[in-house]
Design a protein around this nucleic acid. Sequence first.
DNA 1: ACCTGAACACCGTTCAAGT
DNA 2: ACCTGAACACCGTTCAAGT
Lengths: 231, 231
Amino acid sequence: MSRTRTPLSRERVFAAAVAVADADGLAHVTMRRVAGELGVEAMSLYHHVANKEALLDGLLEALMAEVDESVAAVERRSPEPDWRRALRRRFLTARSAMLRHPWAPQLITSRTSVPASVYGYYDRVLGTMVDGGLSYHLAHRGLHAFGSMALGFAQELFAPPGGEDVDPAAEEEEMAAMAGAFPHLAAMVASEVHDAGDEVLGWCDSQTEFEFTLDLLLDGLERASRSRDAR
Amino acid sequence: MSRTRTPLSRERVFAAAVAVADADGLAHVTMRRVAGELGVEAMSLYHHVANKEALLDGLLEALMAEVDESVAAVERRSPEPDWRRALRRRFLTARSAMLRHPWAPQLITSRTSVPASVYGYYDRVLGTMVDGGLSYHLAHRGLHAFGSMALGFAQELFAPPGGEDVDPAAEEEEMAAMAGAFPHLAAMVASEVHDAGDEVLGWCDSQTEFEFTLDLLLDGLERASRSRDAR
DNA sequence: ACCTGAACACCGTTCAAGT
DNA sequence: ACCTGAACACCGTTCAAGT
């Protein structure tokens, strides 16, 4: 039994946190559980992270590192001079990275302070807009307009982030109640399902919706840039 | 000491939950704390709500009831036939209601299933678009594009929902680090502060940004509607 | 220096017991 | 029918103690 005790480190702690979140969802990322993943007691973690907040900050840092890598890889392969196309592709790349970690949106929205890695990412987004000819004023508005879309996810109210336990029975029940109580939604579902021929619960193609909204914002920003500077 | 024990009820429980959230933030909305607010033991709550999830669902229902009231009051006072102006005003009314409860965004994004009251609200938003001449297909895209903006809040990454404890020292420190490490963000802040003459931390007018993004989306939807149906 | 056991003050929730 | 006390299995965190 040569239990070669690899010494703990911040990196190992954060990697374990990612593993737990991927496997069981964000709610299971507890000091005790992450420690268990490393074959150690909960209290040992406190030698490497100040407290649970710091653990979650590190979890977000690890996630952003993965996003940054994905984005950099794509942009190295084929540089894109047009700012709109560059941002579009970058956000969709971020999205594909985020989709591998369905707990990401909930983690980001729960953080009260944004770690440096997120600032770094947004700094590059801003740089792309300014290099593309947008004023700082309009680029600033662009940052706000994109919001979390820059990181690859929209505020999807009817398709929650997931990662936690989703009750399909409750969802079914909601759908049934919906048909009776909400005439416009029911008519819309009927109309869209008719066009798509898809099954009822799969009719929202969030990838398509994401791209549609993104293009609405990109087009609007460019139009504002071409006419006069906004406001 | 005539402790006139008003009997518990779902309504009283949810109202107490709102009071706790308003006073101390969402994290303090616990079974024990809400019960304490009502002068009762935690276990008594279980006679009126199934569990904590149900308590949070009720909290959201109470919030939506307030939003619905605000919106209905405005729309009774002065009906608005134009769908864009109607939605714009409705979302801004929702926003002013949400701003009274800074814990609202976090509550909504944390919910894994959306309660009926939210469906009702979105059903009316959809109805407004369809009555305004948008196809169900485009109106569906509109619902996704608005996302949480329909409820009055954007995914503000650099101005977190708040309600919980915010550490001003840490924020100060982040700002200082930003200036050195993130050239584009630093230049943007400098440029915007110069134009506005405002203090450093107050330069993001989220009301203005919210309206700008909202108009970008409304304009884009109308343009898509006027040309041909999207996609 | 790094890890740990026991302890503290909290959680949500169950269950048998009170009125 | 409605409320409760004690208990259980969890949290994050502190602190004195081990190696």
